[in-house]
Simulated scan of single mutants.
Amino acid sequence: MSDEPSNGELGRLIQSLRGEMREDLGQINGRLDRLVPMDVYTIEKTQMADRVAALETQREKDAERIIATRRWMIGVVITVCLALLPYLATIVTGARA
């Protein structure tokens, strides 16, 4: 009978165990409060994917617009050169005469 704890010791052990459980549960609740709920995470991830897709689409449109502008500018330069070519030829041939 000396190996068995007394009722008082059992009570203290149970109270100690309850206190430790409360502390542990408090720590778990503190960690859970910092976690993001799955539905919020899913919504944020979906919105981020939508934003990235929109930015990629806009980047492609901008690249196409830049290419079109370069082509237009090259066409203008060629047209101006072709328009000035007869005048330049006249100046060069007139200088020889």
Rank of each mutant, 00 (worst) to 15 (best):
M1V: 14
D50A: 02
R34F: 05
Q15I: 04
W72L: 10
M73P: 10
I28Y: 12
R65P: 00
L35K: 02
I78R: 05
L25C: 06
T69F: 11
T79H: 12
L55I: 04
L25N: 04
G94E: 03
M48H: 14
L84T: 04
L84E: 10
G75C: 04
E20W: 08
L10C: 13
L13R: 05
N29M: 15
R71D: 03
E23R: 15
I67H: 09
L85H: 07
A63Y: 02
A49Y: 05
L85C: 07
M38C: 05
E23I: 09
G94P: 09
E20L: 06
Q15W: 10
I78K: 07
I28L: 15
K45P: 00
V92D: 06
E9W: 15
G11Y: 13
T90W: 10
D24R: 13
P5R: 02
I74Q: 13
I67M: 07
L32K: 09
A89V: 14
L88P: 06
V80G: 03
R71A: 03
T42G: 01
V52C: 01
R96V: 07
R31D: 09
A63R: 00
L17F: 12
I28G: 08
D39M: 04
E20C: 07
A89R: 12
L85E: 09
N7F: 06
R51L: 01
I66T: 05
D50F: 00
Q58M: 04
W72I: 02
G11T: 15
G8Y: 11
N7I: 09
C81Q: 02
R70Y: 14
R31K: 10
A53I: 03
A53Y: 00
I67F: 12
I74K: 12
P37V: 07
V92R: 08
S6E: 01
V52G: 02
M73C: 04
L88H: 12
L17H: 14
L82F: 05
A83C: 13
G8N: 07
G26S: 02
Q58S: 06
I74F: 13
Q15Y: 09
I28V: 11
E23Y: 12
L25A: 10
E56G: 01
C81E: 02
V80Q: 01
S2I: 03
R22Y: 03
S2C: 01
E9C: 05
E60C: 00
V40I: 00
A83G: 11
R65L: 01
A54I: 09
Q27K: 15
R71E: 04
E44D: 10
L32I: 08
M48I: 08
D50N: 05
I67Y: 07
K61R: 15
G8T: 14
P37H: 15
A53D: 01
I14S: 15
G94L: 06
W72C: 06
S16M: 13
L32F: 13
T90R: 08
I67Q: 10
A95T: 12
